[in-house]
Design a protein around this nucleic acid. Sequence first.
DNA 1: GGTGTCGCTGTTTTT
DNA 2: CAGCGACACC
Length: 770
Amino acid sequence: MTDAITTTRRSTAETDPLLDDLTTPQRDAVTHVEGPLLVLAGAGSGKTRVITRRIAHLILRVGIAPWQVAAITFTNKAAGEMRDRVTQLMSERQARALTVCTYHSLCARIIRAHAEPLGLTPGYSIYDTSDQKAAVKSALKSLDLSAGNFPPATVLATISNAKNELIDADEFTKTAFDFYSKSVARVYAKYQSVLKKNNALDFDDLLIKMVELLRDHTEVAAALRDRYQYVLIDEYQDTNHAQFMIAHALTGGPDSSQNICVTGDPDQSIYAWRGANIRNILEFESHYPAARTIRLEQNYRSTKRILAVADTLIKHNRKRRDKDLWTQNDQGDHVALVKCYNERHEAQWLVDRLTELNQQEDLAWGAMAVFYRVNSLSRVIEDALREARVPYQIARGTAFYERQEIKDSIAFLRIIANPNDEVSLARIINTPARGISDRSVKAMQAYALAHDVTMAAVVAQPAQVPALNTRAVNSIERFHKMVNAWRVQAGLAPSSVCADAGEHEPTLRFFVQQMLRESGLEQYYRKDTADPGEERIMNLGELVSSAQQFEDELERETQEMPTFTEKLMGYLEQVSLVSDVDAIDDNQGAVTLMTLHAAKGLEFPAIVMAGVEDGLLPHARSQDDDDAIEEERRLFFVGMTRAMRNLMLTFTRERTVFGQTLPAIPSRFLRELPTEHVDTRDLSDAFDPYGEFDEEDNDLMTPRAARRADALRQVDEIPPGTMVRHPSFGLGRVIAVNNVGSQTRARVEFNTAGVKTLVLQYARLERVSP
DNA sequence: GGTGTCGCTGTTTTT
DNA sequence: CAGCGACACC
């Protein structure tokens, strides 16, 4: 974010450095103190600057205590940036007392402090997507449902949607009528009981438990309302129902402060799929009748041309309140629209262009970014950047924690903090191998189920399980002793030897290092022949550094010295709540690659958006739904408005997806752009697609060309009655063909899979009969 | 008890 | 073209 804002100066007798360089509406937003405030901030209108100044104004000019102010953002990166910028305006001590964090980490922290009344312990686990999948699989198994008929990912999506609406398993059951949703309802209920037994919450539960806390525990709610007198919420257009309930419970009731300030832009709402409810921002004034609304419509970021292109696009959304976004910035260059041959050509063009900007226009690598709709597009671009030796970074913060060796390590730490976490226990009870076979684990699980005790209790006393042989019992006892020793050291279990063992608390760094050694993980990965580069060992080293870094930061940020358990639980919480953009370091001096979703809230002088094609943007999964198409359009709008000076859009003639090369169709949104500001170039003929192949691969040309011709012919002639074959649905008969926009769709009645509507472009249909 | 291979499936965006 | 589960083999 740049701080250089062109100002409309207002001459006042006295000047205030907090207000001096602000426009009238910005200043109004900053100086508004009591009562609800809605700031409708268009893209690039200096929103972050307004929020930070407002916080500083509340504290330095109005005299509000910093600990009474909470600012809630969407990502940790945004929170970190906000905290940094606020810190520059006040003393470090004041800034430290502020609450600046994401919804999820705020909830996680408050839940930890009030774990008992919620039926949890402070060491509760936060389950990420893969832990959730494991929990769903275990639920499916105990209900005797197959993971094949109920793909965990799909079931989880349904459950998550319900949770976002605060619909619990009971209520979900009431609305389930068909077999599938009835089954999902049973899985939902079982999944929740698995989580409960494991002393674990998923991401959605963090919000739900917070709602529960504020609703059912009146003293706690009163204390929280009393503490957070001034609440600011960023990106309000992307809040879901649960998040609204939390904000409203803190600020909206009759006993509440009403001091809520939300900022957002309905045109940048891009998370409806995740339960975000755009009505929260549209109906703010009815939720808070006393609300004042301020509009920030002057853009300080982009050139006139970029803004005109983005504005023309977004005006195609029908469900939209019109607004005027304007700028005093230069006219600027045309937006470039480039047609390439395929994704490799696209990547090559983009790397050449960025290099040109770097060398000829002296633009730093860090000033450039590449956006795409889906993560899978990054690979080819990464390859091209690497080959050209252009430094780049990729917004994939969660990737590190998805690695096997890191998940193993985290599972050990979780087991220490939360003995009931059976998902983590299952992961590491025999990793590295310590003589506890699958059979033994199954026997323990069966015993636990039959005697209604926890796995943790069985692990503590394995001798009581008759099905276990002596060797297995010994191995389990050794495992339990090891974990228990760590717990004692962490102050989480009483010491049997000396009473004051807790006096010398280890550092988190030392503790993690020791765990890696004593668990055998380090040794195990060191000997791993599949890891010749010792990448995994390096990752374990990185994990130790991250623990130390967390420890250092925590000690710097809190007034009192945190205890070891606080450090451990805080670390586990942080690790569970990382987001992809958190990996981005603004001072890396590298080109940044990220999805359009991750780009929200950022800005770059030069941006390339790759893969602007139908099926990608708008995404194929959005094509049947008008609301979804509008969201895709907003996504495009968000991407474009991140650009300050240079905006380049690329699409291809053909693209290889899932190993299949298909003709690509330019995005329908491209037709909505104003031609006078767009410079279109077709480079697809200037690329020799066969230049990619070595001589001996030349015979690949024929089938490839033939396949392309095939795909095209299908679109033309597939009259009703034609028998076709689909790779997964099998044989079927075409019952109707129609054109929707640029797409041909066919309704096909399959012998076994029923009637499906397929987009010919993407469905790999094969003609069987004439 | 650990490792390798085969074949299947599911492929958006994320706290 | 993944990543996973099931299975067989060492």
